[in-house]
Nucleic acid binder design. Structure first.
Lengths: 250, 250
DNA sequence: TTACTTTTGATCAAAAATAATCAAAATTGA
DNA sequence: TCAATTTTGATTATTTTTGATCAAAAGTAA
């Protein structure tokens, strides 16, 4: 077994269990601890996991690898949310698509529509470029290589030059108290611009992010027209009491 | 069995199983390991699979790497022009890169430089995205799928928001009488914007286009600082008489 | 703190895979 | 047809990867 294969398996194993020891991984992969240590060091350097003494921990927000955006593939929950969200899109619509794995999953459900997509996400661009019925408007600006997306002032200016019927966005945290929160300023400014320039804003958000707060607080709950989530009624009760329209997928 | 057939079978085999060893492939294709290695090297260079020690892995999403331009690869003339042009680029430069196959060829000669690239070309984006020393600013606007480039008013506005030390551009026709000409309005407006906002303009142009005129006349000869071409002295005489600085590659 | 255990990183030799070279075979073009 | 070119497969030298060993560093417990 070579490094690439082991890397894949290590990341898959860490996706299930939060953390693993060097020896556990050595047994799973049938390799020596020395090899595992070398692998973990290399993978940690890529930012795909967190190295600990004695093993490794899952990285909560892994840098997207390649343009594949694997996280979410084979994730039935994200797929269900994405499918539900895509159902809101009608032929003739002009839509904003945010970067993020759940929004990315919408692509496969959009391919039969005749729409115009405005996005800052390279994975979405790559996924939709071969669809003849979809026109793409790419947001310009500084390329964030790690996130495979365009960020920065220029990008916000670009978005401000357009109005879309609907925006499909993601967040890192959502709560009745703090509204929408994100890990980074860069992402939140883009998402804010989408919200400002769209007629209707759909927030795609899996249950794990509801009730959690992240670093940057960037929008009120009232900015959102519909939350599409897999979370059950109990979990979204507080949000609904604040007037948020919630659609449960799955 | 020839290379094209084996390539097809290798990619098909990798579609089923995530990864295969050189020896497994050698058995499947009834070829020697040496041949398989050569094939894998070539296919990996196209970006259609990932080469590993001992074999190859399936490429998750070859779409963006599929942007990678093929025309011009194995074209020694274009390569020579591109190499000469790349020699004008210094560390710290901010450069505009136009779309077009000759300019695209510059990428391989730019990978060791520390520069900032502003471009509307997706193949260039795909080629340079993994180079840590190069920062990319992507020009936003309408995506022209056929040309794998961004065009339109928004793109021109975007370019007008920047100033670069150097612009590397292409044309469809170049003559002493009519200056720079292009096939399409869309491309010419972008190229014009590059010219307007760059300190120095380098025109990359192979001999076949010199003395020819195309449809849209979009810039005077005087807009160009240096023409880099493979054409001989006789062919460029008229241009030089009009004050154009000509650098002959090869 | 100190003693003890665990983990790590460096080094090295063995094994595996590769790149380079070259002659034979196949293909191509005149 | 024959010569020239390209492709292939075998051989060999080089590189990469691996697992073992061991001293140093980090963590743990008294």
């Amino acid at each position: 077994m070579n490094f690439q294969e082991r890397k894949k398996k290590i990341l898959a194993a860490l996706d299930d269990t939060e953390s693993l020891s060097v020896f556990e991984l050595a047994e799973i992969l049938e390799a020596s601890p020395a090899t595992i240590r070398r692998d973990l060091g290399d993978i940690a350097e890529e930012g795909l996991l967190i190295r600990t003494h004695g093993g490794a921990m899952k990285m909560e927000n892994p840098v997207l690898t390649g343009f594949s955006e694997k996280s979410g593939v084979n994730n039935p929950t994200k797929e269900q949310i994405a499918e539900k969200a895509a159902a809101y899109v009608q032929d003739g619509d002009i839509i904003f698509l945010d970067c993020g794995s759940t929004v990315f999953q919408m692509c496969r459900f959009l391919k039969k529509k005749s729409i115009r997509v405005i996005t800052n996400s390279l994975p979405i661009l790559a996924e939709l470029i071969d669809v003849p019925s979809i026109q793409i408007n790419l947001i310009g600006g500084e390329l964030n290589k790690a996130r495979k997306a365009i960020h920065g002032d220029k990008a916000v200016q670009h978005i401000n030059g357009y109005h879309a019927h609907k925006a499909f966005i993601g967040v890192d945290g959502l709560s009745a108290e703090n509204g929408l929160t994100a890990h980074s300023e860069h992402e939140s400014t883009i998402t804010t611009a989408f919200i400002r320039n769209a007629g209707q804003v759909m927030l795609l958000c899996d249950a794990s992010k509801i009730g959690k707060d992240s670093y940057v607080k960037f929008a009120e709950l009232s900015a959102i027209h519909t939350l599409i989530t897999d979370a059950d009624a109990a979990r979204t009760a507080a949000l609904r009491q604040n007037g948020l329209n919630v659609e449960i997928a799955g």
